[in-house]
Design a protein around this nucleic acid. Structure first.
Length: 459
RNA sequence: GGGCCUGUAGCUCAGUCGGUAGAGCAGGCGGCUCUUAACCGCAAGGUCCAGGGUUCGAAUCCCUGCAGGCCCGCCA
């Protein structure tokens, strides 16, 4: 449509939030925006009548949600607009929106009032839209390959499947102290015993730990278990999945960035052996033959905080983190960890002292953890008991019912787990996990409570 | 947990040497015959994060606390 022209006939109805009101004599221009985009309303006194024109401008402010009816036109300056015949307020904004040019800058306010950040900052909105679409595509990819999505309990007597401090709660009806889950692993493996040959869950897990740019106590995990598969099958599944999701993320990124990520995540990913990589980068030798005391001394030298009782597995993890992790910029599977680091994985079929496990690293951070699952109940019980001997708070909790389930026979199984938050960070290039979590936790503001203004104080 | 930094109007920010609070935007009123952060004029708007201290006098200096950010250590 040429500038200064109006379409014939067809009336359109639109709605959205008023971004700003520009009043110029007998014309007024009000860009409005909704989830699908932005359009400019053109109010014109001679067109809609002087009285309605004045009335509309008297009541409409920036931030209001309005509905309007009119015909498409292109203004003399070329802006696609709706030449409005009638407009009404659908919802009045009683609080003013942030400054129209600078937006909401205060990082604290952007977290505490994410809803304001969302309608003010298109980048923020795009990030969370992208996250939603990535999760949708993740589901579709797994569903298309025959995996079934399930939901397992968040509350339980035992929080196991990982090494972390749980959140505690109380179950009134049962009058028992319960814990919030720290992992999805053990219930899902019970489903493998039960005959679900391919299951996954996408759900929140809760670890009562610190918050920083890559950790958040309540985060969303994906875990998947695949009967009659091993960790090599799982690695290929991850390669295909992540390549697909990189393509999805690219729709929300600048073209060049999107292409770069898609190229990075094109299979096959790199593969390195845990011990070989550690020994190569650190210059250490015979790492697997060291005594616990020697490992503690080495980890301490590498700058880790190591107590006299720190388990050898932890020391090996620290050494690896110190010498190797940051160097793994391109997607790389780190394979075959020492048994001591991994209580739930199957022993390696040919490498003694190792398990069939991989972690996927990208841009120096761990994205995925996967194994050929341990399915020998006696070995599982022994390794749980080994963990019980660890005098640290963050040990794998003993789950006797899980061992019993395994005694009924669990097929050889490949499994994987990853945090959606970190994957989204990696795909979208976010610097902080708070940038990809809608409502990250914040401390209570002074004198702030769940009490309404002037209402009664909470008990 | 350690270090550094930030907190002033609804929002974005100034505030000098310690002398008693400023701008722009938003909102109000008036003007403007197609604007793009529209523009012009007028008026209004403050628990200077909180508490304490120093001082004749504190947004400003000192102490304590609260909230947030960044870096480091730790859990994915």
């Amino acid at each position: 449509m040429a500038p200064g022209t109006t379409a014939d006939g067809d009336t359109r109805r639109v709605a959205g939030r008023v971004q700003v009101v520009r009043e110029v004599g007998e014309n007024a221009f009000l860009p409005i925006r909704d989830g699908t985009g932005q359009v400019q309303l053109h109010l014109r006194a001679p067109h809609m009548g002087e009285a309605s024109f004045r009335e509309a401008l008297a009541v409409i402010d920036g931030g209001d949600i309005v509905g309007a009816e009119g015909v498409p036109e292109r203004t003399r300056r070329g802006e696609p607009s709706l030449l409005v015949s009638s407009v009404s307020i659908l919802a009045k904004a009683l609080l003013p929106p942030p400054e129209k040019w600078h937006g909401l800058k205060d990082p604290e306010a952007r977290l505490r009032q994410r809803y304001v950040d969302l309608f003010t900052s298109p980048e923020t909105y795009q990030t969370f839209l992208a996250r939603s679409v990535i999760v949708r595509e993740l589901r579709r990819y797994l569903d298309d390959r025959g995996f079934y999505e399930v939901e397992t309990p968040v509350l339980g007597r035992v929080a196991s499947g990982a090494a972390a401090r749980p959140f505690l709660t109380h179950y009134n009806y049962l009058d028992e102290d319960y814990k919030l889950r720290i992992s999805l692993e053990l219930p899902l493996k019970r489903l493998i015993v039960g005959g679900f040959d391919g299951v996954y869950e996408i759900g929140k897990v809760f670890r009562n730990e610190d918050l920083d740019s890559t950790h958040i106590p309540e985060f969303t995990e994906v875990e998947l278990y695949w009967a009659y598969a091993d960790y090599e099958d799982v690695a290929r599944l991850i390669e295909g999945l992540f390549h697909h999701l990189a393509g999805v993320a690219g729709r929300f990124l600048p073209e060049e960035t999107g292409r770069a990520i898609l190229t990075d995540l094109t299979p096959p990913f790199g593969r390195i052996d845990f011990i070989e990589a550690l020994e190569r980068e650190s210059g250490l030798t015979h790492v697997l033959d060291r005594t616990p005391d020697e490992l503690r001394a080495l980890a301490r030298e590498a700058g880790a905080r190591i107590g006299p009782e720190t388990p050898p597995g932890t020391c090996l993890d620290k050494l690896f983190a110190h010498f190797v992790e940051a160097k793994l910029d391109q997607p790389t599977f780190v394979l075959d960890h020492p048994v001591a680091t991994t209580p739930l994985a199957h022993r390696h079929r040919s490498k003694p002292g190792r398990v069939e496990r991989f972690e996927l690293y990208y841009h120096g951070t761990e994205l995925v953890n996967a194994y050929s699952e341990l399915n020998d109940p006696d070995d599982q019980e022994a390794r749980f008991r080994e963990q019980l001997r660890e005098p640290v708070e963050e040990a794998y909790a003993y789950d006797s019912d899980f061992v019993e389930a395994m005694r009924y026979g669990m097929p050889p199984t490949g499994g994987l787990g990853f945090g959606i938050d970190r994957l989204v960070m990696a795909l979208l290039g976010a610097a902080s996990i708070k940038d990809v979590v809608l409502f990250p936790p914040t401390r209570a503001r002074a004198a702030e409570n769940s009490r309404p203004p002037n209402g009664p104080a909470p008990e």
